[in-house]
Amino acid sequence: MKRAVSAMVLMGLGSAAALAEAGAKGGIPDPAASWNHLWHDVLLDLFIIGIVFLTAGLYWVWKYRASRPNQIGTAPKFDKITLIGLAVVPSFIFMADDFYLAAKGWTVWNEYRDVPRNAMEVKVTGSMWSWNFEYDNGASSSFVVDSKEGDGLVVPVGKPVVLRMTSTDVVHSFFLPDYRVKEDLMPGRVTYLWFNPVKAGETIATCAEYCGNRHSFMWTKVKMVPQAEFDAWVAKKKQGA
């Protein structure tokens, strides 16, 4: 038992160290991919803990069922040292796992908050119940949910995008499920998120902070298009405005 415990602790520390090395790569990171990767690691971690406890629990429930009425449990009486050990050792295992997960989480978190310098800025304004996007050249775009008209957020593929967000009325949250990111918008404050559109395509962004009657309908199309197409689109949008 003790050997297994120390092996687990070492494994935790070892992976944390390996992770620190892996974090030092160049190039523009892809936070969504890192998120997915971390999610699988976390699931594995949870699965192991869950299986250990559940098996022990269900096995004991089955094994120690009373065989006759008025039977009394025969739990051994542990001495003080064993009891302290049985509290301290698991505590350290839990803490080791916590630190292991915290270290992994922190690495990906830094990716999430470290906006690449060349990121394209888009200003996002949330209001009940629509999103508006403003580009650096003054072009503005939005998406009307009822008529399905408008382009919504259009971004060039391969260029990181940072959203500078504020709200005109209540708290909203800009949630990009496909890019594994969300951040609240509030009146009087400015918040950020960034994402890396690696592939062309279309997805959605939706409001994730309760904002009243049409909360469910506060969503927008998000289009990832090749750079040339984006340049043409944003120029045309500017003329239209």
Partner: peptide
């Protein structure tokens, strides 16, 4: 609750 305790995991899983 463990992924939800991790800031970066909660940034996607929160409010879902």
């Amino acid at each position: 609750g463990i992924p939800l305790a991790m800031t970066v995991m909660a940034v996607h899983l929160g409010e879902t």
